[in-house]
Design a protein around this nucleic acid. Sequence first.
DNA 1: TAATCATATAAGTTTTGGCTAATATACGTA
DNA 2: TACGTATATTAGCCAAAACTTATATGATTA
Lengths: 107, 107
Amino acid sequence: MNAFDVLCDPVRRRMLELISQREHASGEIVKVAEAEFGISQSAVSQHLRVLRDAGFAKVRRDGARRCYEVDPSGFDDVDNWLKKVRKFWETEPEALAIELERGSGSV
Amino acid sequence: MNAFDVLCDPVRRRMLELISQREHASGEIVKVAEAEFGISQSAVSQHLRVLRDAGFAKVRRDGARRCYEVDPSGFDDVDNWLKKVRKFWETEPEALAIELERGSGSV
DNA sequence: TAATCATATAAGTTTTGGCTAATATACGTA
DNA sequence: TACGTATATTAGCCAAAACTTATATGATTA
């Protein structure tokens, strides 16, 4: 699943909000997701796996618990894409010409 | 459909890449999408509608043609959300404390 | 006006992703 | 070791969204 697909889901975005503030144990996230979205522990665990696999979250074992924190690297693809499409409308014409000259243009 | 859902789809992202460079007529986009994704004119038109409805694209009539260009406002929600989650891990602790003090924190 | 081109819309089908329920795994404790 | 707690995985179901085919709308041209 690519970076954009990951961010599509409102539950996953909420989870990222949580773990971006501080480390959260899986169980803590389950409580929030259950309260706010009415979904099960299983659903949360599956979402956490998606976040891990796509490089948006790192896990640390703490006994029986798993503590999640944000892994910024997951955002790289999103950042790069946004930067790419923005280059063409948010850059001064001359600067854009130079960018393209240097071969960093996407077309 | 919210901003993240819009960017989920690879066809729509490709379309945004195209119209971010310069205005494109619907027909031009159809040709690219057909070549790169093997989808029909109808599918493209439906994607264009999504982009319009979500504020990612503006249309201009040119006779029988419709010319599309990027509408940056569609990106606002994405930008704001990214900024929000980033605040917590990319800000100096003191600066973050001040931010929260000012009531701009998300929790 | 008829025919054609460019694009949009509608209806119906297929695919994908997210969910639940059930089960497995791993740790902690009596 | 046995049991309870915390989390992950599997299988199968369902809904949303993306697609195709067919059709409608509007502009251009003969």
